[in-house]
């Protein structure tokens, strides 16, 4: 039968070996972190962005590297998924981006602060996270949505968050099927530059799209015509 001193030896030796192994692995990890995280790209903007991230306790709702709270979306790859237009819009005025939905705190960030946060999130997106977050493996089994071919990137990242085409997309704003029949290019251009200038009670925010992006979107929206 096991004696107390043998049990004590098991505890001390086991703990000692584990501790040494852990210290060794930590040493190696710290050696590899700079390359895996592109630490040379941590510019002053990125560092300030992290300060804002910490200072506002963004992790209290969001996750980053999957760490944080589960009240708001995972943000490791947000720049790739949503793009700069959407992220900036959200940081400028979250309530305008998702009216009547789950709310984000209105932080009233300055443009410089938004630049810093965008730099931080862009840097985060390039860290080698061993494949996290994974591509959804069952996506291909879903009913095929309208072909995404030919859509401008900004449409796929930003517009689709609130609007749907062919049943796929958000339901905050109206579906865009047939919008090319309902509205002409001039109306769409004015609308995209500033929705409230066209319709004062419009709930869609001014997204700060560039002229090139607006042109691209108007061309694409013009192809969404009702077939009859």
């Amino acid at each position: 039968m096991l004696s107390k001193s043998a049990a004590k030896a098991f505890f001390l030796i086991g703990t000692g070996i584990s501790f040494l192994a852990f210290v060794g692995l930590t040493y190696d990890t710290f050696r590899q972190i700079p390359a895996r995280t592109h630490a040379d790209q941590i510019t002053p903007e990125v560092a300030r962005g992290k300060e804002i991230w910490d200072h506002k306790n963004c992790m209290g709702c969001h996750t980053i590297f999957g760490e944080g709270a589960y009240y708001a979306p995972e943000l490791t790859k947000v720049m790739e998924r949503r793009g700069e237009v959407f992220v900036r819009g959200m940081l400028r005025d979250p309530a305008a981006m998702y009216p009547g939905q789950r709310q984000m705190v209105q932080y009233d960030f300055t443009d410089a602060e938004i630049d810093d946060l965008v730099a931080f999130l862009t840097w985060i997106g390039h860290v080698d996270t061993n494949g996290f977050p994974a591509d959804p493996p069952l996506r291909q089994h879903l009913a095929p949505a309208a072909s995404a071919d030919g859509r401008p990137l900004v449409f796929q990242q930003t517009c689709i968050a609130c609007h749907s085409v062919g049943g796929a997309g958000g339901n905050v704003g109206p579906a865009l099927d047939g919008v090319g029949t309902r509205r002409d290019a001039d109306y769409l251009t004015r609308w995209l530059h500033d929705p409230s200038a066209v319709k004062p009670e419009a709930r869609m925010p001014q997204l700060g799209l560039s002229d090139a992006q607006v042109t691209e979107l108007v061309t694409y929206l013009g192809t969404l015509r009702t077939e009859h």
Binding site: T15, S18, F19, A21, Q32, I33, G66
Partner: peptide
């Protein structure tokens, strides 16, 4: 003893996806 034998290196389950090897 079992706690430390598994728990110390078990910290690794937090190091899967945060930019570590």
């Amino acid at each position: 003893g079992l706690t430390f034998l598994s728990g110390i290196l078990g910290t690794g389950h937090h190091y899967y996806y945060i930019g570590t090897p």
